Simulated assay, not measured.
Amino acid sequence: MRTYSQGMRQRLALAQAMLGLPDLLILDEPTNGLDPPQIREMREVMIRYAAAGRTVIVSSHLLSEVEQSCTHLVVMDRGQLVQAGPVHEIIGSGDTLLVGTVTPVDEPVAEKIAALPGIASAVRTDEGLLVRLDADGTAPRLIAELVRLEVPVASVGPHRRLEDAFLTLIGGSA
C-alpha cells in the first residue's frame, strides 16, 4: 500500500470501511486526495450506499461536495452546534432570490425592480434576475410586483450556496 497514490489509498479505505455493509458509515474528508472523476465516483458511491437505507455521516470542509451529496447537515463552530436540518432548508433561508424568466429582462425593468420597496438590489443574469431583499422584503411581495410589471417569471427560488449559509451561520462574511 505504501506505493499507492493518496487517491488509491482513500478509495481502498472506503472499500475497507464498507466491508460487511455496516448500517452506519462515518467518513472524514472522503474526497481528500482524489481527482475530479474520482470525487464524482466517491459522491455516487456514498449516495447509493445511503439510498440502500444506511446512514452515511461525512465530515468535510468541502462544502460544495457536502451540498451535492448530503440530505441533512449539522453546522458546528468551535465545537458548538449552530444549526442542524435538511440542506435545502439551511441554504434556502437567505435573502437572495434567483428569478428565472422566460425571456431576458431589459435593464430599465431591472432598474424598476431594484427601486421597489423591500428590494435592496436587482441584477440581470443569464437566467433572469438576481434579487436581494432588504429587511422589509418578502418573496410573495416580490412575485406580486413582478406580475404587476409583466415580467415573464418562470421560477423563483433561493440563490445561495452552502458556503454562504455556513459563513452567515458562524458569523463570517457572506
Rank of each mutant, 00 (worst) to 15 (best):
E111P: 02
E111D: 14
E111A: 14
E111V: 01
E111N: 11
K112N: 00
K112F: 11
K112D: 09
K112R: 15
K112V: 09
I113Y: 01
I113K: 03
I113W: 01
I113D: 08
A114F: 07
A114M: 05
A114T: 03
A114L: 06
A114H: 12
A115M: 09
A115W: 07
A115P: 01
A115V: 02
A115Q: 02
A115I: 02
L116I: 08
L116K: 09
P117V: 09
P117M: 03
P117C: 00
P117N: 07
G118S: 03
G118C: 02
G118I: 11
G118A: 06
G118P: 02
I119R: 04
I119M: 06
I119T: 07
I119Q: 06
I119C: 09
I119N: 10
A120Y: 01
A120E: 14
A120P: 03
A120V: 04
A120N: 05
A120M: 08
A120D: 14
A120L: 10
S121V: 05
S121P: 02
S121W: 03
S121C: 05
A122K: 08
A122R: 09
V123T: 15
V123M: 04
V123I: 14
V123H: 11
R124G: 11
R124F: 01
T125Y: 06
T125E: 13
T125R: 09
D126T: 14
D126G: 15
D126M: 08
D126L: 13
D126A: 12
E127V: 14
E127D: 15
E127I: 10
E127P: 01
E127T: 09
E127M: 11
G128A: 03
G128W: 12
G128L: 10
G128I: 06
G128F: 02
L129F: 07
L129M: 14
L130I: 03
L130N: 11
L130Q: 15
L130A: 15
V131Q: 04
V131Y: 05
V131S: 02
V131M: 11
V131N: 01
V131F: 02
R132Q: 15
R132Y: 03
R132A: 13
R132V: 12
L133G: 09
L133H: 10
L133M: 12
L133F: 08
D134K: 14
D134L: 07
A135Q: 13
A135L: 05
A135G: 03
A135T: 15
A135Y: 07
A135F: 10
A135P: 00
A135E: 15
D136G: 11
D136T: 15
D136F: 03
D136Q: 14
G137S: 11
G137M: 12
G137K: 05
G137V: 05
G137Q: 07
T138A: 06
T138Y: 12
T138E: 12
A139L: 11
A139G: 05
A139Q: 14
A139N: 03
A139F: 01
A139H: 06
P140H: 07
P140L: 13
